[in-house]
C-alpha cells in the first residue's frame, strides 16, 4: 500500500501544547500505536506515549482517538480511512507530556479498598457459577479509560466524592466474592460514593475488556446500599431485630 495516514497528535506538557500534524505510510492492519511508533522512530524520538505489551493486556496506552477514549494498540487505523486521526491524552488526568498523563490518583484510591477477608483458609471450596460472577471484573486491565470518560470525575471534579468505575468493579470483585467476610457497604455509601454515579453507562461503553461495569457491578452495589441505607422497611426490620449493621441478605457461609 502506498497510501498514507494523517495524524494530529497533541504535543506539549503542563505549560500547554498544540496538535502537530504527522504523515505515516499505511500498512495492513496498522493500529494507532504503530503509527505513533513510526513517528517516534523517525520524526520525533521524544514523543511521549505509554505502552507496554501492544496486545491489549496491560492497559498502558489509553488515550482519546478522535474524541473517543481508546486503547491505542487496539484501535485500527483503517477504521478512520479518509479522516485525520486526532490523538489526545486522557483529559481527566493531569498532563505530564504529550500523551502521557499523571494517573497516580488511581493508585491512591486503590489503597482505600480493603482486601479480601477470607471466611475460611485456602483452598477454597467454590463453584464455577460463583466464580463466574466475579471473574468478569477480574478481566480489568486498569487502562483507566472508564475513569477518563466518567463525567463525575471528568466534568464535576468528583475525585473527592467518588472512586470511579474502575474501583466500583474492584469493590464488587471482593464484595461479591463467595468467601469474603468483610462488609464494604458503608465504604460504598460514603467514601467510595457509589451514588455519585448516575448510571449513564459511558464507562461500560468505553471498556476495552467489555466488562458490563454499570449493569453487573455498579447497579448491584447501589442496590446493596439501598438495602442498607434507603429501604425504610429493611431499616425498620433491622432496628427491630437489633441488628444494626449486619450485612443484609448476603450469606457468608463457610462451605463444608
Amino acid at each position: 500500500m502506498s497510501e498514507e495516514f494523517t495524524l494530529r497528535v497533541w504535543r506539549g506538557d503542563k505549560t500547554g501544547g498544540e496538535e502537530v500534524e504527522y504523515h505515516v505510510p499505511a500498512e495492513t492492519g496498522m493500529v494507532v500505536l504503530d503509527a505513533l511508533h513510526h513517528i517516534q522512530h523517525n520524526e520525533a524520538p521524544d514523543l511521549a506515549v505509554r505502552w507496554n505489551c501492544k496486545a491489549a493486556h496491560c492497559g498502558s496506552c489509553g488515550a482519546e482517538v478522535n474524541g473517543q477514549p481508546k486503547l491505542l494498540c487496539k484501535t485500527r487505523m483503517d477504521d478512520y480511512v479518509g479522516q485525520t486521526v486526532s490523538v489526545k491524552p486522557m483529559q481527566t488526568f493531569p498532563i505530564i507530556k504529550d500523551l502521557v498523563t499523571d494517573v497516580s490518583w488511581n493508585y491512591q484510591v486503590a489503597k482505600e479498598i480493603p482486601m479480601l477477608e477470607p471466611t475460611a483458609p485456602a483452598p477454597f471450596n467454590m463453584q464455577q457459577i460463583d466464580a463466574d460472577r466475579v471473574q468478569e471484573f477480574h478481566r480489568c486491565i486498569e487502562c483507566f479509560l472508564c475513569q477518563d470518560t466518567c463525567h463525575v470525575l471528568r466534568n464535576h471534579e468528583g475525585q473527592r466524592q467518588y472512586f470511579g468505575p474502575r474501583f466500583m468493579i474492584k469493590i464488587a470483585e471482593f464484595e461479591m466474592h463467595p468467601m469474603d467476610g468483610a462488609d464494604r457497604v458503608p465504604l460504598l455509601a460514603h467514601e467510595a460514593g457509589v451514588n455519585m454515579c448516575n448510571v449513564t453507562k459511558c464507562c461500560t461503553e468505553v471498556c476495552p475488556q467489555h466488562i458490563r461495569i454499570t449493569d453487573n457491578a455498579i447497579i448491584p452495589l447501589k442496590e446493596r446500599v439501598a438495602d442498607r441505607y434507603y429501604d425504610p422497611v429493611k431499616i425498620l426490620l433491622r432496628r427491630l431485630s437489633g441488628k444494626k449493621n449486619a450485612p443484609t441478605g448476603s450469606s457468608h457461609k463457610v462451605s463444608q
Binding site: I129, D130, E175, P220, E223, R224, S251, K253, S255
Partner: peptide
C-alpha cells in the same frame, strides 16, 4: 437484586 443478586454465594 431481590431474587438473587444480593447473595454472594449460590452454591454454598
Amino acid at each position: 437484586h431481590m431474587v438473587g443478586g444480593k447473595k454472594d454465594c449460590y452454591s454454598c
